[in-house]
């Protein structure tokens, strides 16, 4: 779980956007987030644009309220994507340096990696990518393979820098967007390759896919992820049927985390933790999320696990 939170930046008078482009600031913010929100890990980076920058995308680092985003695609076609030779951008190195700075203590470090579909839709107009899936599947497969080779290198570098675990997030391959057929033929092979590469390095992998992943369950079962992180639209108990012996992660609504108060979040988190072995936000956090709301989620997890004496949360009996 990693995100740039406006309230945390304001309270601590942190300059922006150094947490995105300076290794010391990135590591410092990761520690601040971990301590303030009482979460169990450090995680970097705080955006999904580093890999796109490696491929030449122009990125606006945004503001404390606006997450970084791609402002110019480096390609108009899949052929142009295939012609790009990626090179580590400065923030790629910053991320690795931040991981190295965070390792060595008791808190595990998570390296965050953007999935191949999300990366492809950051390199050219997403509608063109989805159109190509219906018209030129072979070329989409080639492009995804091309991106995957780079993502595997970045994953291996993150592990070498000291990451204890990787979170591979591919919201662009949501079941709602592309459906089971395209996921099976195009995306699953790339996700499998990345997960296997990290496993070869001896580190666990969390896979996150957005939206309704129920149609993708058979394909997801074939990938050796260590935990599957899912969106709040997915019923964890229904999903568990497909993966009886495996670890599910999630799925506290990010909207709830952003707009609700501690007691409601505690209740929702308490429900999620009945099935979810690892409690986490269901998707990317809004910058307006209050740290205390994340803390409510974390405390629900700890209470459920019986790790700590129960906190008294107003409104929760």
């Amino acid at each position: 779980m990693a995100g740039s939170l406006y309230a945390l930046l304001e309270e601590n008078h942190l300059a922006y956007p150094t947490l995105h482009n300076n290794a010391a600031a990135m590591a410092e913010y990761a520690v601040l987030l971990q301590q303030t929100c009482e979460i169990d890990n450090y995680g970097v980076p705080f955006c999904m644009t580093v890999e796109a920058e490696d491929f030449g995308a122009e990125v606006d680092l945004g503001s404390p309220l606006k997450d970084p985003r791609v402002t110019r695609y480096p390609a108009a076609t899949l052929d142009q994507v295939l012609a790009i030779h990626p090179a580590a951008c400065p923030r790629h190195r910053v991320t690795l340096d931040a991981i190295a700075r965070l390792t060595g203590g008791d808190v595990p470090v998570i390296g965050n990696l953007t999935g191949p579909t999300s990366l492809l839709t950051s390199l050219m107009e997403p509608t063109e990518v989805y159109r190509a899936m219906a018209k030129d599947e072979k070329k989409v497969a080639l492009a995804l393979t091309h991106l995957t080779a780079h993502l595997i290198r970045f994953a291996e570098e993150q592990v070498a820098a000291g990451a204890d675990m990787l979170v591979l997030a591919d919201p662009g391959s949501s079941g709602d967007i592309i459906g089971g057929g395209h996921f099976r033929r195009l995306v699953a092979p790339s996700l499998l390759a990345i997960v296997e590469a990290v496993k070869v390095c001896g580190k666990p992998v969390v896979l996150h896919i957005c939206g309704n992943i129920m149609p993708l369950a058979p394909e997801l079962a074939e990938i050796p992820w260590d935990a599957l992180s899912v969106d709040s639209v997915v019923s964890l108990s229904k999903l568990q049927v497909h993966f009886p012996e495996r670890t599910l992660m999630g799925n506290v609504s990010t909207h709830l985390l952003a707009v609700s108060s501690g007691d409601k979040i505690y209740q929702a988190a308490g429900k999620a933790v009945e099935v979810s072995a690892i409690l986490a936000p269901a998707c990317g956090l809004s910058t307006t999320t209050l740290p205390e709301n994340i803390r409510s989620m974390v405390r629900a997890a700890r209470d459920a696990a019986g790790k700590l004496p129960k906190y008294s949360v107003p409104g929760v009996s």
């Binding site: 989805y130 159109r131 018209k135 967007i177 459906g179």
Partner: peptide, 14 residues
């Protein structure tokens, strides 16, 4: 009904 997804919607509308 979950038979078509965004790729098919886009190309049909094209």
């Amino acid at each position: 009904s979950g038979e078509y997804f965004i790729p098919q919607m886009l190309v049909a509308s094209d």
